[in-house]
Amino acid sequence: MSIQHFRVALIPFFAAFCLPVFAHPETLVKVKDAEDQLGARVGYIELDLNSGKILESFRPEERFPMMSTFKVLLCGAVLSRVDAGQEQLGRRIHYSQNDLVEYSPVTEKHLTDGMTVRELCSAAITMSDNTAANLLLTTIGGPKELTAFLHNMGDHVTRLDRWEPELNEAIPNDERDTTMPAAMATTLRKLLTGELLTLASRQQLIDWMEADKVAGPLLRSALPAGWFIADKSGAGERGSRGIIAALGPDGKPSRIVVIYTTGSQATMDERNRQIAEIGASLIKHW
């Protein structure tokens, strides 16, 4: 067993022997301040990774656009098919120029040779490549099948209805392509620590998230040296922004954090800054 596999296998073990965790309302004060600064709703939840206990939450059962955070769930569904012998990570998928959609920095470079399922998941999570996500959605049967996968996990809230990039439209009061912070946090925890996926697939999923290259201005910008984070960000229309993450000190994750916002007129930089400040408060009061 590799060191990384050992780390993920012992996530519940280490967490069980940690000192009790206590909620700190100071972080919620910052979440509410972010709402004021952005002029928009902000949803927040913080779960203990081992027990699933909610440590703090704000608007945990209000719907927010998922945006690209759905790509972690998508690759979880792909990995479940791999575990069941219905898919192979090494299978190569070929596609054409007509398949390319807006923001496809990886797939646009491989029109000639195609990409493997493993490479597509890596591109979808680490670079948020939209064509990679659409190609992977095709392998599982489309958005409705991802929703069905989530329902089978016990998540009857999260739903995907459309493809990239239309799913980022974020129309107010439109339930399409949305989740709730509580539902997303619980589902992410199941994917990373539950028995739904094999140990190898859980490790692969967290490795992809740990290698995320496009979430630097968010929670990662607030992390002290030595902290662990595996995350996936999302951005959408109407001032929408979000991030889902597993993080913790001492090089291992111990909490799940989900943050979503929508309806702001603020710039992307300002949305990023507010999420980073929430992260800084979380870490300060850990």
Rank of each mutant, 00 (worst) to 15 (best):
H24C: 09
P25E: 10
P25T: 09
P25W: 12
E26Y: 14
E26S: 13
V29W: 13
V29K: 14
V29T: 15
K30N: 03
V31G: 02
K32Y: 09
K32H: 11
D33L: 07
A34H: 11
E35Y: 02
E35K: 04
Q37E: 05
Q37A: 04
Q37L: 09
L38I: 06
L38Y: 14
L38R: 05
A40T: 04
A40C: 07
R41C: 10
G43Y: 00
E46R: 08
E46T: 08
E46W: 11
L47C: 14
L47W: 10
D48E: 05
N50R: 11
S51M: 10
G52P: 13
G52M: 10
K53P: 03
K53M: 15
K53I: 12
I54A: 11
I54Q: 11
L55T: 12
L55E: 09
E56F: 05
S57Y: 08
S57Q: 06
R59Q: 12
E62M: 04
E62T: 03
R63C: 14
R63D: 03
R63T: 13
F64S: 00
P65A: 11
P65S: 11
M66L: 13
M66Y: 12
M67C: 04
M67K: 02
M67T: 14
S68A: 00
S68F: 01
S68D: 00
T69H: 10
T69P: 13
F70N: 12
K71L: 00
K71P: 00
V72Q: 01
V72Y: 00
L73E: 03
L73T: 06
L73V: 13
L73Q: 13
L74M: 11
C75Q: 01
C75L: 09
C75N: 02
A77P: 01
A77D: 07
A77N: 06
A77L: 05
V78D: 02
V78I: 15
L79Y: 03
R81P: 01
R81N: 04
V82D: 06
D83R: 08
D83H: 09
D83G: 08
A84N: 15
G85E: 07
Q86I: 11
Q86V: 11
L89R: 06
G90P: 05
R92M: 14
I93G: 02
I93F: 15
I93D: 02
H94C: 05
H94P: 04
Y95D: 01
S96P: 09
S96F: 06
Q97P: 08
Q97N: 09
N98E: 06
N98C: 05
D99W: 14
D99T: 05
L100Q: 14
L100P: 03
V101D: 11
E102C: 06
Y103T: 14
Y103P: 12
P105T: 14
V106Y: 14
T107Y: 02
T107M: 07
E108P: 14
E108R: 14
E108Q: 09
E108H: 13
K109E: 08
L111I: 12
L111V: 09
L111M: 11
D113I: 05
D113N: 03
G114M: 12
G114D: 14
M115N: 05
M115L: 04
T116S: 07
T116F: 08
V117Q: 05
V117I: 14
V117F: 05
R118F: 12
S122G: 11
A123Y: 11
A123L: 04
A123R: 02
T126I: 08
A132S: 11
N134Q: 12
N134D: 08
N134K: 05
N134W: 02
L136N: 02
L136C: 09
L137C: 06
L137I: 12
T138R: 14
T138I: 15
T139A: 14
T139L: 12
G142V: 02
P143H: 05
K144L: 08
K144D: 05
E145A: 05
E145H: 12
E145I: 04
L146W: 06
L146T: 04
A148R: 05
A148L: 09
A148G: 04
F149H: 13
F149P: 01
M153I: 04
M153K: 05
D155R: 00
H156L: 13
H156G: 11
V157T: 09
T158V: 09
T158K: 00
L160G: 13
D161E: 05
D161F: 04
D161M: 04
R162M: 06
R162A: 08
W163A: 09
E164D: 02
E164T: 01
P165T: 09
P165L: 09
E166R: 12
E166D: 10
L167G: 05
E169A: 11
E169I: 08
A170F: 05
A170K: 15
A170E: 10
I171Q: 15
I171Y: 15
I171M: 15
N173R: 08
D174Q: 11
E175R: 08
E175P: 09
D177Y: 01
T178M: 03
T179L: 00
T179W: 00
M180H: 14
A182T: 13
A183C: 08
A183E: 06
A185C: 14
T186R: 14
T187G: 10
L188T: 06
L188D: 00
K190H: 08
K190C: 12
L192C: 06
L192T: 15
L192K: 02
T193D: 08
T193A: 14
G194H: 13
G194P: 11
L196R: 13
T198W: 06
T198Y: 10
T198N: 05
L199R: 05
A200D: 10
S201M: 15
Q204H: 09
Q204E: 06
L205E: 02
L205G: 00
L205Y: 02
D207I: 12
W208S: 03
M209E: 00
M209A: 06
E210H: 07
A211V: 15
D212I: 03
D212P: 07
K213Y: 04
K213G: 04
V214T: 11
V214E: 14
A215G: 15
G216T: 08
P217H: 12
P217K: 13
L218S: 03
L219V: 05
R220N: 04
S221Q: 11
P224Q: 05
G226V: 03
G226A: 06
G226F: 13
W227D: 00
I229F: 13
A230I: 11
D231C: 06
K232H: 00
S233C: 04
S233M: 01
S233W: 02
G234W: 00
G234R: 01
R238C: 09
G239S: 08
S240H: 04
R241T: 10
G242S: 13
I243V: 13
I244N: 02
A245Q: 01
A246T: 08
A246E: 05
G248V: 00
G248Y: 02
P249S: 10
P249C: 05
D250N: 04
G251T: 10
K252G: 09
K252C: 09
P253I: 14
S254C: 12
S254T: 11
I256W: 02
V257E: 03
V258W: 01
I259L: 09
Y260E: 00
T262K: 04
S264V: 08
Q265C: 10
Q265I: 11
Q265P: 10
M268R: 12
M268F: 07
M268K: 14
D269E: 12
R271C: 14
R271M: 14
R271S: 08
Q274Y: 04
I275C: 14
A276R: 09
A280R: 13
L282C: 12
L282V: 13
I283W: 13
I283S: 15
I283M: 14
I283Y: 13
I283C: 13
I283E: 12
I283N: 09
H285I: 06
H285K: 11
W286S: 02
W286H: 08
W286I: 09
